[in-house]
Amino acid sequence: MLPVAFAAGAALVTALAAGVNARSSPRLDMDRTAEAVAEAAGGRYDLMGLAGVMSRLDGAQLALALRHDPAMGASSLPGLTPGWGNLRLGGRPDPFAVATGLEALRLNAAEAGESVVAAAPPFRFQPAGADDRRRALRCLTQAVYYEAALEPDDGQLAVAQVVLNRVRDPNYPNSICGVVYQGAERNTGCQFTFTCDGALARSPTTWGWSRAQKVAERALAGEVAKPVGSATHYHADYVRPWWAPSLTKVSQVGAHIFYRWKGAAGTVAALTHSYSGREPVIDEALFARPRDVVTAALGYEPMLDKSAELVRDLLGTGNRTVEFEGTTKIVGAPSLGGRRQPTAKEISDINERLKAFEEGRPVPSPAPTPED
């Protein structure tokens, strides 16, 4: 649901822009307001629609709307540099702080992408053997599924493109599994959070996995996601990592914003690494154990901040529809990507273990989790 302040501001801006005179029509003002908001939102009432409404506001209107928006609280005060709350005495933003929600949407929308994007060349997939082919397809499918299960096809293909761009970037491993699982063996360096947050412990949905695998197969067959060009990084549009300004924004596809390195290092010509053809064997049981991933924010990673997922739910995105093979599926974010809501018994067990830890008593072992 759109905040009332944004709705009122959008109605004012669109009405003035269209030269509407309320006194020349018998329609109620609320009808005009509803039409203006719907037009600004492009008929959408999710975060993308809200971004459309925000784009119609000038600085004064936006500041007024934010001041009266209960979702923002006092986090955005007039006259202060965006991100002021994350600055340390040394002047460097806190690497653990990520702007989320409406503030992140505003900051992301204010930064323009590239007007001309040079598409990356098709990926030359020449695995050394059948096992390498199977491993590569599985790793790429995992990246697409756990990072973009609820994205449209072009959004999923864009995520696959980032993985393949990294394979060809000299700064990263030259295998697909190597790129996807880079840093996952450490507590502080995973590049894709699903490799170290425990998501792999949950079985993916059959239809969601099949959809992601089809996209991965297309990418390995040479299909290119042209809008993301040579991008090697991305983040969700409802978060604003502190590192974003240090890269060049390329474009937004679905809910993800894509970036490349600044200068010559981020051009298509810099993708000079040759694919090794050999894929490492991944111990998925090891990487299915959740670990501390907070300090992964120190690097330039395409990770999704988990607190931001909660923010997105709180902002009202709720269930989403996904098209797959002619069928429209209505799903909620926790139902994909191997995540689910805890049961009452699990919550009770967690609280009991926390209490035992705080009191210095032996911590009881967790009960086995039920299978989906």
Rank of each mutant, 00 (worst) to 15 (best):
G19D: 04
G59W: 12
G129N: 14
A71N: 08
V311T: 15
I330Q: 13
T343F: 00
A236K: 03
D237G: 06
T100A: 10
P78C: 03
F194K: 04
V117A: 01
G101C: 03
V167D: 03
T267V: 03
L102E: 14
A130I: 10
P204L: 15
A269C: 10
A296T: 15
Q142K: 08
S203M: 10
A15E: 07
P241K: 04
G101A: 06
H233R: 14
Y238E: 04
R240P: 02
G19P: 13
K345V: 10
L314F: 01
D237N: 14
D46R: 03
L2R: 04
Y146C: 12
L50D: 00
A38D: 10
Y145K: 02
L66Q: 09
E309K: 08
T272K: 02
P227C: 05
P173H: 08
N351P: 00
W242N: 09
T81E: 08
A231R: 01
T206C: 02
A17V: 02
I330L: 07
A255T: 14
A236S: 09
M1Q: 15
T100M: 09
T272P: 13
S75G: 13
A356H: 13
Q191P: 00
V37Y: 01
K345C: 01
A65C: 06
M1V: 13
P362Q: 13
E309D: 06
A22Q: 07
Y172E: 09
A18M: 00
V159K: 02
A71R: 12
G337R: 11
L336W: 03
E39Y: 13
T81F: 09
W209I: 06
S55F: 00
G42F: 06
L286V: 10
T267K: 09
A71Q: 08
A120M: 02
R23S: 13
L77G: 02
L157M: 14
A60C: 11
G318Y: 06
S274W: 12
A270V: 08
L271D: 08
G85W: 14
T295A: 15
M54K: 13
A41V: 01
L107R: 15
L298Q: 11
L304D: 03
S230D: 00
K306V: 00
R88G: 12
T343I: 01
E147I: 00
K329Q: 15
L50F: 15
A40Q: 05
G83I: 10
Q61G: 07
C196T: 09
T193E: 14
V311Y: 06
D58H: 02
K214P: 04
R218M: 02
A71K: 08
R320N: 02
P127R: 14
L12D: 14
K214W: 04
V215P: 01
R67K: 09
L314N: 04
G338A: 14
P95Y: 11
A40N: 07
A296N: 13
S203Q: 09
V239S: 07
G198A: 01
P366C: 14
F357R: 09
L336A: 01
T369Y: 00
W243P: 02
A160E: 15
E358A: 13
